[in-house]
Design a protein around this nucleic acid. Structure first.
Lengths: 116, 116
DNA sequence: ATCGTTGTCAACCGTTCGGTTGCGGAAGAA
DNA sequence: TTCTTCCGCAACCGAACGGTTGACAACGAT
């Protein structure tokens, strides 16, 4: 799964990882702090962080023996751009469909096939 | 994986499924039409559509023996709402950090610990 | 009544995923 | 130095995922 978009969507498909992102939006935190609220091992959370890091959503810097985790919010744009594109396209279709429906009663189009 | 947000993110984490969504944004299509460009079986595409349907991204109506697939774009809002929330929160943090940094040189704050 | 098309369901297979345990490295504290 | 804390890596396990093949239901066409 090489492509960045898949990695980001996939990373956020997990509730625990979304919660981690939510908490990092408030403040940076260490792995142990992040792991505290969940009833899983620290290693499991470390794995989650690796997934988020590979997706570019998070960065880990070095600070003595602590590894403070920081949210990189720019990657969100990747998703919003993709989503907005097709949302708009779908809305555009609705708009055009409305036009067609409005035009219909006055101008019944032939249902393809040679006219008699 | 019960929660809707996980289902939507997970559904879009696959490149084939994102491509299907992209094509459905242009026009409704049948399963065979959708499967044509990919070198997988029709059954595989049918499975992908089930995933998209469970996520609420797509609906399948009945029309003779055809099952036209239709994009339901409203579900996108679920994601954009979630993303925007934390993107804004992160930006807010940056803004406050800037304020702190601007105030720093003039007002070096004590580094927590009883003041002498 | 039979045939061809369209699509789903079920069973299976290899891979990935989320979790565990166990170990080891890096760095401050004693 | 030795101890303790924080954390990542490797190996393993069960569940879920993406794909296949095979069978079958539904419907239009002949």
């Amino acid at each position: 799964m090489a492509d960045p978009l898949s990695r980001v969507f996939s990373a956020l498909a997990d509730p625990t990882r979304r919660d981690i992102v939510a908490r990092l939006a408030v403040a940076d935190a260490t792995v142990n702090e992040l792991a505290a609220p969940y009833d899983v091992t620290v290693q499991a959370v470390s794995k989650h962080l690796k997934v988020l890091e590979d997706a570019g959503l998070v960065s880990r810097s070095r600070e003595a023996q602590r590894r403070p985790v920081h949210l990189e919010a720019e990657v969100f744009d990747l998703m919003t751009k993709w989503i907005e594109r097709y949302r708009r396209q779908a809305e555009e279709r609705y708009r055009r469909l409305d036009d067609v429906l409005r035009a219909m009663p006055d101008d019944p189009p032939p249902l393809e096939g040679k006219p008699s």
